[in-house]
Amino acid sequence: MMAAARQKPQPWCGAPSPQTIGRAATRALYHELALCPKPGLVTLTDNGSHRDMDAQTFMRSLFALRGYFVAIAELGQQNADFAALERCGIQAEAHMLAATGGINTHRGAIFMLGLLCSAAGAVSGSGAPPSPARLRNTLRQRWGDALAARALRAPSLPGGLAAQRHGLRSASQEAALAFPVLFETAVPTLVAGLARGLSPVQARLDTLFHTMAVLDDSNLAHRGGLEGLRHAQQSARGYLAAGGATSPGGMDAAHAMGCDFQVRNLSPGGSADTLAAACWVVQLCSPAP
């Protein structure tokens, strides 16, 4: 019966509140943090390829950001312009840095999940229940022009500079396209994995690797250059071709990849943000009864 319930999640009867939207975002970021093994990334028991942060750093950041996701969902519900969303995100980043002692744990999630929460707020304000298609269409219709203009700005952060240097699609460009990897790869992979009876850990791990295989992850490019990005993508494809998380030895293979990523100083932070966003979409659009 439990497996059947997981395969047929119940939709919302009505539109979720900004508080529900924001809580789902915080919960999704925790699910991403707790996932293990997760090559190169911080988990509850492993720092991955990072020397300046651990799970406690991430938890401090999560507590600092709880109000942000609610606030930006409220802005979306109020039909705020992009400038207001951007100001809210800048304030959230300052809160994050204050909580972590200047360490960037969630800058990408502040941008990506913040935009998604604002889109969910806008959908909720219309009285409609959220769906992946409604969220993506709302991003395009409400803030698509502003996001396209933002993507033309000269990059100043390490990930954007790496994307420009190597001719990759940056996080800003991904947002301007309404997050194609999220909605066309990550969300369908997570939904399909849960529908066929995978545990949440297995489904999330396979979703992470499917995302790594196709995303122009600028964090990987920043830390390992184009060679590091391509190595991570090929490793993810090889992992999936061997059967993924449910294959015999699948977890051991993920652990071994983590050791390889540590040696190469690789951390797929953009893929982790996309996984968290996929967890949020699935929670919000198909919450458990």
Score class of each variant (00 low, 15 high):
A151L: 08
Q234P: 00
V191M: 00
P155A: 08
L198Y: 01
S118Q: 08
P39E: 14
E227N: 09
G258E: 03
A34S: 15
A175G: 09
R134W: 06
T274Y: 05
C13G: 11
L190R: 08
H31D: 02
G121Y: 06
Q141M: 14
G167T: 05
M96Q: 08
L113H: 01
P268V: 15
E227L: 13
A55W: 10
A55R: 08
A73L: 13
L135V: 06
L229M: 11
A28P: 03
A28G: 07
N137V: 04
A192E: 08
N265F: 08
A154D: 14
R165T: 14
T43V: 01
F58W: 09
C88D: 00
H231A: 07
Q78E: 11
E74V: 04
F179G: 09
P37E: 12
M53K: 05
L75Y: 00
G270E: 14
G197T: 09
S61A: 06
A175L: 04
K38Q: 15
E174V: 00
L240E: 09
T138L: 06
A254Y: 00
V201Y: 03
C36K: 02
Q233F: 04
D217V: 00
S49C: 10
L75A: 11
M112S: 09
E86L: 08
A203Y: 07
S131M: 11
A272S: 15
L284T: 04
L62Q: 13
M96C: 05
H255Q: 10
G89A: 10
R150S: 05
G22Q: 07
G249Y: 00
A203H: 04
R204L: 05
E174P: 02
G127W: 00
W12H: 09
S118Y: 02
S126M: 09
G238N: 15
P132E: 05
Q202H: 11
A98I: 02
R60A: 14
M212Y: 04
S170G: 11
G108D: 11
P289W: 01
V123I: 11
T211S: 14
W280P: 04
L113W: 04
S170T: 03
H31R: 15
L33G: 08
A15W: 02
